[in-house]
Design a protein around this nucleic acid. Sequence first.
RNA 1: GUGGGCGUGGCUCAAUUGGUUAGAGCACCUGGUUGUGACCCAGGAGGUCGGGGGUUCAAGUCCCCUCGCUCACCCCA
Length: 416
Amino acid sequence: MKIKALKGFKDIVPGEVELWQYLEKIARDIFERYHFAEIRLPILEETNLFARSIGEATDIVEKEMYSFVDKKITMRPEATASLLRAYIEHGLYVQKPVQRLFTIGPMFRHERPQKGRLRQFHQMDIEVLGSENPRVDAELMAMGSLLLDELDLTISLEINSLGCAACRPGYRATLVSFIEERKEALCGDCKRRSVTNPLRVLDCKVPSCKAQVINAPSILEHLCGECDDHFHKVQEALQMLGIEYSLNKFMVRGLDYYCRTTFEFITSDLGAQAAVAAGGRYDGLIENLGGPKNSPGIGFAIGMERLILLLQQKDQKVLKTGEVDLFIVGIGEAGSNSGFALANVLRSKNVKVAIDHEGRSLKSLMKQANKAGARYVLIIGDTELASGKGVLKNMRSEEQQEVALTGDAVLECLQN
RNA sequence: GUGGGCGUGGCUCAAUUGGUUAGAGCACCUGGUUGUGACCCAGGAGGUCGGGGGUUCAAGUCCCCUCGCUCACCCCA
């Protein structure tokens, strides 16, 4: 019986990994431009951390976490909780009043896999801690837009406000009574949601539910003065930056900690998985996790698998990597020995060198060199060893020249 | 947890109404004279047809079970 990767766990093999490297490179570069610092976090945390931040009653915590029950630890299902834990644990709020951090890595959720959704998936997570300023909200969205832009993806931005502890309960009550009046016309899921998470009814996909809910009261008309003011300033800031967005008063968040500004980058090219990146504000969370009082925060996560799928769909430019500068062809035992040693010398001089150890024919090795995308081939056989000079072939121009069999001599020819 | 679709060599796929040693393309290996790549030509290796049971003279092709993959629901990045 063959051993296979677990359901929902994927290998990223050569040929595919180049796209991931490309994505990470672009992203890191942009994060730096926006003055974010990287933080690397452990994958295992106390189960308690996630229960407290994400919410006891959420699906993630209730049934999707990979937990070692006996040890009371869990593989992180998302990054924000871990990042805030580290922020608090190391007193980062003392070092700088506002911390701008990002982290990249795998997350784990036990869900049924489907397109754009795996059990081990990867996120880039960006957080700004210690600022309530609406410009920060806009700045994050601008950064997300720039990233998608530089990846040449056209993805729309939707925003909403969820209010705060002062105004959301009132809105919720209004919404519940609205739903109650129409409950009979709603789907089974929505009947359940009307009790467990009424806000979720707003973004039900069933057409009949959508029709019922189209005139539902909007949270935006029930925001308290402060939330309303904040949300307006977010939009002003977006306009100042020239970021296009649309209001989606039905947008809801799955995790308990979100408040005020929420946003999603949406695509229609990924089947059921519309959100490529999403996030929002969580102003009370840091304090709840034992951090300083009145410490606001905002962040968002980018689903890397989803971006990769979009990039693959474009199947545009083929990313070539792994090309070597030089392929050394050693003929016979003596030539092979000489090439073996020379390869090592050149590698220490920062040359990408490929060499075959299987004693194949010259023709075969030339084919290999071609496939490896080698710029040059160096042939070393008995005649070359006798004269002390190898044959260096430029695979592009097909020109050949003699070169002394020393690292420096070969290096000089390669640099011309 | 629920539902639909699919499971043939590394990859993409073929196999007439169930009928001889399961094929092709790509990839791979070896050659096409004495030491040279991409094209071309010739040859070669590689498959318990996901697994198990059943029907039949005969099953990759039919039935049952099972496992896996995939898409969707739920939920979410």
